[in-house]
């Protein structure tokens, strides 16, 4: 394998319902920096049916080139068909780096592609950098259950691959009118060559919890002691008109469902105000909330790492502080209304 043959940074462009996924735009932002540092092209690889017009968005988000596989067989995401397109493209055009969103689709695809290439794949990356000279990708992520960060390298294989958490990288502001080179590719794949078939897609809007869109999140951790103790979090969230978040421990203990989990294996959130109550602040949690506007921590243990990652901290008993906060907040709000 001659590394000189491998050039350029690629982003797998995830699309659904005629839209480019926001994580793909974020990766184009991050990929742009890597490509510029290396002095190489940034390309998107776009696979789907009737998706060619989405190239406009991809160029405006920073890509120089877009490889497009636009065929009916790609109507639904399927591991085998998408993987074949990606392998075909990688074989022909030889990128040095391929980035995927760490979504269920991105992770599924990247795992399959990595096995077939074969190459190394780093999962759920939260920091990316590249060595200017060697082109070595430095992909960092929380490791060992999220208590520490690890930088992962892939020295002997190309392309180097990583899946990247959503909402961690920043998309560039779209440069309206920016264009680039479209490379249209096709592969001969028959429906009967693909062993899976999507029978039906069902949207579930009712049960959906979208804590990643909330302005205020009140998150609770194991420090609340029990399922009953955790109800305090619901009460404060209700008072403030916020959403409820939770640490991994709490979700694993069954006090609340997984869609509420903030952190590496949950959601990444960027609310204007984030309360971390009874949360010690493991790195896997911090990576999911550190970009919040104001972070307020309440914890009994003054040594808890959360106090290194907050804007305001209260060392104290949540069962004393929070009810008082609810009471005083309601009082202040009522007064506010009267004076208006």
């Amino acid at each position: 394998m001659d590394f000189k043959d491998y050039k350029g940074v690629w982003v797998f462009i995830e699309q659904k319902d005629d839209m480019v996924a926001s994580v793909s735009l974020e990766l184009l932002g991050a990929g742009r920096k890597l490509a510029d540092k290396r002095g190489v092209e940034l390309a998107g690889i776009l696979i789907g049916e009737n998706v060619k017009h989405l190239t406009k968005t991809v160029f405006e988000a920073g890509a120089d080139t877009v490889y497009v596989y636009d065929q009916p067989i790609f109507k639904h995401y399927r591991t085998e068909s998408y993987m074949k397109a990606l392998l075909d493209c990688s074989d022909k055009h030889k990128p040095e780096i391929i980035l995927y969103g760490a979504t269920s689709t991105g992770k599924d695809l990247a795992s399959a592609v990595a096995t077939d290439l074969p190459t190394g794949l780093t999962a759920d990356t939260t920091e990316l950098d590249v060595e200017e000279e060697t082109g070595l990708l430095l992909a960092s992520r929380p490791a060992f259950g999220g208590n520490i960060m690890a930088t992962i390298l892939c020295k002997k294989y190309r392309p180097q691959m990583a899946t990247v958490r959503s909402k961690v990288m920043k998309a560039l502001p779209p440069e309206i009118g920016r264009t680039g080179k479209i490379v249209e590719e096709t592969i001969s794949l028959k429906e009967e060559d693909i062993r899976t078939k999507v029978l039906e897609i069902v949207k579930e809007t009712v049960k959906k919890v979208k804590i990643d869109e909330a302005d205020i999140i009140v998150a609770g951790g194991k420090g609340l002691g029990s399922f009953d103790g955790f109800q305090l979090i619901h009460r404060l969230a209700e008072t403030l008109g916020g959403a409820v978040g939770a640490s991994r421990d709490v979700v694993e203990a069954g006090w609340i469902d997984h869609p509420h989990q903030v952190g590496q294996t949950g959601v990444t959130v960027t609310p204007k105000i984030y309360f971390a109550i009874g949360i010690s602040g493991a790195i896997q949690h911090i990576v999911g909330m550190k970009n919040s506007g104001i972070i307020i921590a309440i914890n009994k243990d003054k040594e808890a790492p959360i106090f290194q990652n907050c804007h305001y901290g209260i060392v104290g008993d949540a069962f004393e502080i929070v009810p008082l906060l609810i009471e005083m907040f309601e009082h202040a709000l009522a007064k506010e209304k009267v004076t208006k």
């Binding site: 190459t119 190394g120 780093t122 992962i152 390298l153 002997k156 907050c310 804007h311 305001y312």
Partner: peptide, 24 residues
């Protein structure tokens, strides 16, 4: 294994926030 862990590190600790003092 194509991937290797090159270094393991604790993220630099941010300065930390202001601790609100006093009684509850």
């Amino acid at each position: 294994s194509p991937t290797i862990v090159s270094k393991v590190w604790a993220p630099p600790k941010p300065a930390g926030g202001s601790i609100l003092e006093g009684n509850p």
